[in-house]
């Protein structure tokens, strides 16, 4: 479980919140859009037995600051997280990213290969995943649906339910986690700013870099993820040399809710040092 109070560190003029637990080689857990560090709560204990686990809230998410000036795109988050790890004094670390976090994992790995020992992409965005161009983001249906979700918990719950295979696990307690940032106007604006900041080019630009990376990659996909096409994960597996693809059944987009133990098992196995 995550500790009750997050720690905070000032990065580039704004505070980032994070939870840190365990000892060993560092592992950075990075969430995606609509979630924040809470999504790792069922995994952190299992990982912390062998690793120094840091679950960070991206800028504009969770308990981190929510300024509307900086970009919340994948590239901006990636550079911000590099500064974050330096501020924490982390050496080379493993990067585990979910959804947008998976995209950030790809960008940091190729842009800062000396920092990342292992990269894990869980139901991650890749290539031209985002169906819109920034300038008209707010008027596209997918974003308007997300915008509606910021105002209507019922709409938000539909999004979450579609993203979880075991629907009975979408409890009021889980929805309280998801809904927390939407309870303030600031949180709602930050969420929409996140959506508006997304730009395919942040990932399409690094396609060639991915093909040349030497960092071990683990690609995990929930086979019942309706938000990201299977092709994303399959193409990643094809493009990234030496990558390993694990497809887990009975797991939706929010695979951390459906198969936490399986994830811990896969991650610990992947991150175990080679004899």
């Amino acid at each position: 479980m995550l500790q009750a109070d997050a720690q905070r560190v000032r990065i580039q003029g704004h505070h980032l919140a994070y939870h840190r637990q365990g000892h060993g080689s560092p592992v950075l857990l990075v969430h995606g859009i609509t979630t924040y560090s809470f999504i790792w709560r069922n995994l952190i204990d299992g990982l912390a037995r062998h690793h120094d686990v840091i679950a960070v809230d991206l800028l504009g998410c969770g308990d981190s600051d929510m300024p509307l000036d900086p970009s919340y795109g994948v590239a901006a988050h990636a550079e911000r997280l590099v500064a974050f790890t330096q501020a924490l004094g982390l050496g080379p670390f493993a990067f585990v990213g979910h959804d947008i976090g998976g995209g950030i994992a790809q960008r940091i790995t190729v842009k800062h290969p000396d920092l990342v020992t292992h990269a894990v992409v869980i139901n991650g965005v890749a290539f031209d995943y985002w169906p819109v161009q920034p300038i008209i983001t707010m008027r596209t249906p997918i974003v308007r649906q997300m915008a509606m979700a910021t105002l209507d918990m019922g709409a938000f719950k539909l999004i979450v339910q579609r993203g979880v295979f075991h629907k009975e696990r979408v409890t009021p307690e889980l929805m309280a986690y998801f809904w927390k940032p939407m309870q303030t106007r600031e949180g709602r604006k930050a969420f929409l700013h996140f959506a508006e900041s997304l730009d395919n080019r942040d990932l399409t630009d690094i396609t060639d870099d991915l093909r040349r990376t030497k960092t071990p990659f683990l690609i995990i996909r929930g086979m019942d993820d309706v938000y990201l096409r299977a092709e994303n994960s399959h193409r990643l597996h094809r493009e990234i040399p030496g990558s390993r693809l694990v497809e887990i059944a009975e797991a939706g987009h929010f695979i951390q809710e459906d198969q936490p133990d399986r994830l811990v098992e896969e991650l610990n196995a992947f991150l175990r040092p080679n004899p």
């Binding site: 707010m138 008027r139 974003v143 308007r144 915008a147 509606m148 910021t150 105002l151 106007r185 709602r188 929409l192």
Partner: peptide
Amino acid sequence: LGAVLERVCILKA
């Protein structure tokens, strides 16, 4: 007024 304006602005972009 603040809530109405927010809803219109968000939902109608």
